[in-house]
Each structure stands twice: as C-alpha cells, then as structure tokens.
C-alpha cells in the first residue's frame, strides 16, 4: 500500500526506482494499481518496508517483461517537512542530477 507524506515524518520509507530502457532516464513507480512510472521522486509511491517486496516484484515483472525499464530496485528515503530525501547520496544524486552541474538533470527543471 502506498502512503501519503503526512503520515510518515521521520520514518524511513521506500520508493521503487529504475532506469527507462529506451533512454536511461531515472524513473520511479507511481502510486496506484496500474504500475505507472514517473520521472520525479515527488510523484513516486512511498512504501512501508513490509509492503515493498510485493510491489517491487510486481514492478520488476511489468517493467522487465515489457522491456520498459532495467535495474528495478527499492531504496530508502525520509520525509521531513514534506521533502523527500533519499538516505544515500547515490539516490539523492539520481533523483536530482550531478552535484557539480546543477544546471543539468532533474534539478535543472525543478
């Protein structure tokens, strides 16, 4: 089950991410039963730890089965003051873009 942000201050949640096959773009699994993918972390579904495995398996099956995405996996993030902040630097950089070129990547369009 996907959660909304307000219910989850401080707690570590998970989001599901991948790279889109045809262009490599970083994508995130969106909320809802139809297994849609979005390009911004703010629009991603968030999961409690226990619910992640089933969602991940479904997302993998869909994304890989349909040649839509590769490297599907879940990562940890925290929500503080409505901001979603991945725990690891790697995932922060994937969600935003290179720290040395803030004119490029998702952060540039923000």
């Amino acid at each position: 089950m996907a959660l909304n942000d307000q219910s989850s201050n401080e707690a570590v949640l998970k989001a599901i991410t991948a790279n889109r096959l045809r262009d490599g773009e970083v994508i995130f699994l969106a909320p809802g039963p139809d297994l849609r993918w979005v390009e911004r972390l703010d629009d991603a579904a968030l999961f409690e730890d226990a619910a992640t495995d089933a969602a991940l398996a479904a997302a993998k099956a869909q994304a890989e089965g349909e040649q839509f995405a590769v490297d599907v996996y879940a990562f940890d993030l925290r929500v503080a003051d409505g901001q979603r902040v991945p725990v690891k630097t790697r995932e922060r950089i994937r969600a935003l873009g290179p720290t040395v070129r803030i004119d490029l990547g998702k952060q540039a369009a923000a």
Binding site: N19, L21, R22, D23, G24, E25, V26, E64, Q67, V70, D71, R90, I93, R94, G97, P98, G105
Partner: peptide, 28 residues
C-alpha cells in the same frame, strides 16, 4: 532486438558495452 524483447538485458549488456554504451546514474 533488445527493445522488442528478443534479447534480454543480460544478453544485450555485453553487446552494448562492446559499443561503448554504459548505463550510468542519470542516463546512458
């Protein structure tokens, strides 16, 4: 063949690498 599913990612990866194509954090 990759986009059509004839090649799996596991099979395609070495082929794209031999053409210098990696998948990195933000893109290829």
């Amino acid at each position: 063949r990759r986009l059509s599913g004839e090649l799996t990612e596991d099979e395609f990866k070495p082929l794209r690498l031999m053409n210098g194509l990696y998948l990195q954090l933000h893109a290829y």
